[in-house]
Design a protein around this nucleic acid. Structure first.
Lengths: 218, 218
DNA sequence: ATGAGAGCTTAATAGCATTAGGTTTTAAAT
DNA sequence: ATTTAAAACCTAATGCTATTAAGCTCTCAT
C-alpha cells in the first residue's frame, strides 16, 4: 500500500532502529544514544515518542504478537483433525519466527526475563495464543483422536516447551540453520504420545492415519 | 567495625547476598551498592573479589551446576531400564530446582538469556548435563526399549523443553505450587511417544492397557 | 501576521559501575 | 616486640547512561 508520506514516521524509524540494536546487542548494551544516533535524532527526542527505554522495548514486540493473534484463526480455519491442526500451529508459528527473527528474538531472549513482562500487553496476547492449543487438545480428546485421559494443559506444556526450546536454541546458535530441519520427525515423535492408542498407527510420514494399522519397523 | 562471622569468608557472604538480591529483584535492578550494603562493605571492596558485576552474577550458579554434575552419576548408578533412568533424571532435576530455587531462578530467568551465557563455565556444565540424556536415549534405542528410529537429540529436545517449560512457568508463578503436581502424568505422556511400539503396552500407572496389543516380535 | 503546538535541540541532573589512591589490619619473619 | 609486606578495606573520584529542563524553529489554521 502507498502511504501519503514518502518517509516513514519518526516513531516507526525509532522502532525499527531499536529493534535491530536490541536484537543484535541486547537491551542493556544498547544505549539510548546508540538508537538516537542511528535514527538521526538527539537522545531527548526519543522521549517525545516513548515514556522511557523500557517502554520502547515493550512496544516493539507488541505489534508482532498482535499480528500473530490476528492471523491465527484464519490459519486454522477449515483444517480438519486435531493432529492436522497441531501440525499447522507448529509450522505456522515457526514460520512466523523465521520471518520476523528480530521480534521473536526480543520476545525470547529479552522480554521473558524482564520483570515487567507479565504485566504487558504482549504477555496477555501470548496467553491467548497458547489458549488456542488448550482448545485443540480438548477437542482431540473428545473426538477420540487423542488419548481419552489426556490432560490438555499437560500436552500443551510439552508442545510449547518443545517449541520454545528449539526456538531458543536456534537463536543461541545464531540462526545458523533452518528451524524446519527434522521438524517432521520431531513433531511426530512428540505428538505420537498424545494419540489415542485405540486408533493409532505408528505412522511417521505425515499421511493421515485411518483405522488400525500395525506397523513393524524391523 | 562490628565483629562479623569469622567462619564464612567475605567472598561467600557476597555471593549469598547477591544471590538473594538477583533472584528477588533481577540483575539490572540490583545495584552494587545494594549488595555491598547488605554484606556490610563498601562498593569498592566487592571488586577485590570479583572482576565486575557480571562476573559476580556468573559465579553464583557456577558452583550449583558443578554440584549437580557431580551428583548425577551417583543418582543414575544402578538403575536399570531407559525409562527408569529418564524418570530418575526428571525427578532428580526438579528436586534440585526446588531445593535451590535461588540458583535455579538465576539460571533460568537471567543467565540463559544472557548473551555471554554460552561462553561461561556454567554453560559447558549444562551441556555435559544434557549430554547424559543423549546417552540414555541412545541406549534405549539400542536395547529396544525405545523406538528403533528414535533420534536421541530430538527426544532430548522434547525432554529438556518440557522440563524447562514447567520450571520457567513455576518461577513466573512465584513458586506458588509444587513442581511435582501431576508430574507422573506429564512424564508418561511425554515418554510414551518415545517407547518402542513393538513392546509397549499403553500402561499408565495402574490403568489397564487398551484392547489393542501390538506385535511381539519380528 | 500571529500564536500555538509539533518536533526538535543543547545542556543540565542524578544514578550507577568502576577505578585511583590511600589507610588499616593481619600475620609471619626478624 | 618490632618490622614488613600483603591482604582487606575505605573515601573520593571518574566517566558513562537514562532522563529531564528549558528553550528554539518551523508549520499552519485563524
Amino acid at each position: 500500500m502507498q502511504s501519503r508520506n514518502p518517509k516513514k514516521s519518526t516513531r516507526s524509524r525509532i522502532i525499527e532502529s531499536a529493534k535491530k540494536l536490541f536484537a543484535e546487542q541486547g537491551y542493556q548494551k544498547t544505549t539510548v544514544i546508540d538508537i538516537s544516533r542511528q535514527v538521526g535524532l538527539s537522545e531527548a527526542a526519543l522521549y517525545e515518542y516513548f515514556k522511557n527505554k523500557e517502554d520502547l522495548l515493550l512496544t516493539i514486540p507488541d505489534l508482532w504478537v498482535s499480528d500473530l493473534l490476528a492471523d491465527l484463526d484464519g490459519q486454522l480455519f477449515g483444517i480438519k483433525g486435531t493432529v492436522n491442526k497441531l501440525r499447522k500451529f507448529f509450522w505456522w508459528y515457526l514460520r512466523q519466527v523465521e520471518q520476523s527473527p528480530l521480534d521473536a528474538k526480543i520476545v525470547y531472549l529479552i522480554l521473558k526475563t524482564n520483570a515487567n513482562f507479565m504485566t504487558t500487553e504482549v504477555f496477555s496476547n501470548v496467553k491467548i495464543l497458547y489458549s488456542h492449543l488448550l482448545d485443540i487438545f480438548e477437542e482431540g480428546r473428545e473426538s477420540g483422536e487423542l488419548r481419552p485421559n489426556l490432560k490438555p494443559y499437560l500436552a500443551r506444556a510439552i508442545f510449547i516447551g518443545t517449541m520454545d526450546h528449539i526456538i531458543t536454541r536456534w537463536f543461541l546458535k545464531n540462526m545458523s540453520y533452518s528451524l524446519f530441519d527434522n521438524l517432521e520427525e520431531l513433531f511426530n515423535l512428540m505428538v505420537d504420545g498424545f494419540r489415542n492408542p485405540s486408533t493409532i498407527a505408528a505412522n511417521h510420514d505425515g499421511e493421515e492415519a485411518n483405522g488400525i494399522k500395525l506397523n513393524k519397523e524391523c
